[in-house]
Design a protein around this nucleic acid. Structure first.
Lengths: 330, 330
DNA sequence: GCCTCTTCTGTAACCGGTTACAGATAATAT
DNA sequence: ATATTATCTGTAACCGGTTACAGAAGAGGC
């Protein structure tokens, strides 16, 4: 490995001069600069970022804490964060916390010891105090629970309202909502949106909880139809859950959308792959990731933030799990 | 931030003693050890891994190079690598190369400068020489093109043979294979397995190329049926491609599996979510990831490798895209 | 009492960068 | 001619760990 001292020797200058050339600061004569640049090229010198980190107490790395990369909502988010990070010269470290606070704490400690420059939190099992004590820039992504930390979320409440209204407008009169876990803020917001609409409109409804995976929602759906066979519309809190609903209805011999209409939430690629394709509330996932990354990097680079909380618009993506005409079945 | 010097001062010993206590080497008296441990606890001291890295020239980080984390094959692989890495105290840095050699080179340079301890390559755009010059432990995952580097792949050739035989045994007589890109080794192996069986058995067949995404395979399928409407079996080189096939056949009014049987390759969770659920050649994806990670860490820790090339068994997962009886339609 | 060996400890150099500081030279102002 | 400033350069300290080395103290053998 070539070091700065090798370069200095080769260019017959001091290490300080080499450093000045590389960082373009301080005075360096034309000749010295050329000699250094030539030496760098000849030796194929790449400065060691660990040494740099040690002095600057920064690492050009950011941490991305997510529950689980195998949950299909997160890869696109991660990809967006990485794409932005790359253009600014940052490296992303993805950590799967499994919503386990010990794991999360462990990762945060490890990252801190590596002088990680900032964290994007798409998971939050710890208290805000824990995060605050870190003394590094933070961004909350997809989960907001705090005013003072920059946040990127989509309009879960409004999206859920639209989803529910869509089901009603297309003829559903007894609607079930399969909500996500109670402690998850986004699941709560979607539930509240649903609740507001069905209560306002006086629509029969039922709410059950499931985890954000296919197995759990499939089982919950089966139980749901067991008890309420007349349900004719389902709003699932995520697309993966909606896939579970489809599995269950298929087994039960219910037709989608003729007997039961279905709408999901997220807009992950899976929805399009399903047959029938899923009607869903699409979040701008990639965009959320890019905004979060930029927001974090701005903080790291001490630029002022004009907006602290981004609430992005969702939009309905019409698939084949809702009926095309409003009164196909009454 | 507390440093080792703070701890030394607090415990009234030298930094060397503190270091000796932490690393459990060299002689330390009982009293000194206790004082140091107390100081570490009182000050909540966490050694700085950057400083450690600088001295040891290692980072406890490994790089995972994949084409694209949003391709659903990779999250599970990444998850497996991370889970193993975590238990050995390593941090994983995932890099999306998009099969772009410049990007790959850039990432490798960046990782090298961070003293990354090893790399898992699930992508290979560069020549083996490029990798070899790095002088750090490597593992090839899912793509093998070299004898001297430890490798983890599944039996693509054999899996493809089984897939083709399954279609035939269940009655398909004109089979199309939608293969992956020519330069990808795994796509080639699957193609060769298919070729051997159809040629051996004298089955009518056709092969077309597509990318590993839904859009491309959907379009290719449409063109395929345009030209060969009598195709009654399709072997897709990946599950995502198979989803594209399903989309296309749906639009064309062909029924699966009554008119056309379909089998994919990979065994990603998506397959189960599809309706009908996908028959596929399941690779032990998670296992591949864990083996690759262990193989890499063994090398990093200078342990001998007993096996250089792992070729893992695939298994057929029967879904609803193939017929249950052998002669449903002749 | 003297020598050897084990146990224990601290000083200082090192990893590979960055930069404060001081010293040297050249250019410009007075 | 002298003072002032701008330009240029190298030495050495520093970031926060690790460890070679040397020295001190005590135990045990002769």
């Amino acid at each position: 490995m070539t070091t700065i001292r090798d370069v200095a020797k080769c260019a017959e200058v001091s290490v300080a001069t080499v450093s000045r050339v590389m960082n373009k600061n301080g005075y360096v004569s034309k000749e010295a600069e050329e000699a250094v640049l030539k030496a760098i090229k000849d030796l194929n010198y790449k400065p060691n970022s660990v040494a740099r980190s040690l002095y600057h107490k920064t690492s050009k790395m950011i941490g991305l804490l997510i529950p689980d990369i195998s949950n299909p909502f997160f890869p696109e988010l991660a990809r967006a964060v990485e794409d932005v990070a790359l253009t600014y010269g940052y490296t992303v470290v993805i950590c799967n916390t499994d919503d386990d606070s010990d794991k999360e704490r462990h990762y945060i400690d490890a990252l801190k010891q590596k002088y990680v420059d900032g964290l994007i939190l798409a998971t939050n099992q710890l208290t805000m105090e824990d995060y605050h004590d870190l003394n590094i820039p933070l961004v909350m992504l997809d989960r907001s629970n705090n005013q003072s930390t920059p946040t990127v979320v989509s309009k879960n409440f409004e999206g859920a309202k639209e989803a529910t209204e869509l089901l009603i407008s297309k003829g559903s009169r007894f609607i079930a909502h399969i909500r996500g876990p109670y402690q998850v803020k986004t699941a709560d917001d979607r539930y509240l949106g649903f609740k507001e609409v069905v209560e306002d409109r006086g629509i029969a409804h039922v709410v059950v909880e499931a985890e954000f995976n296919i197995k759990s929602s499939k089982q919950v759906t089966q139980e749901l139809f067991d008890r309420y066979p007349t349900i004719d519309g389902i709003f699932a809190s995520s697309d993966v859950m909606a896939a579970g609903v489809m599995k269950a209805t298929k087994q039960l011999g219910k037709r989608i959308p003729e007997d039961v209409q279905l709408i999901g939430f997220d807009g992950i690629p899976l929805g399009e792959m399903l047959i029938p394709s899923l009607t869903t509330v699409t979040q701008p996932i990639y965009k959320m990731g890019t905004i979060a990354a930029r927001l974090l990097i701005k903080q790291i680079e001490k630029q002022p933030l004009d907006i602290m909380k981004y609430e992005l618009e969702t939009k309905i993506t019409l698939g084949e799990t809702t009926r095309s005409d409003s009164f196909a079945k009454t």
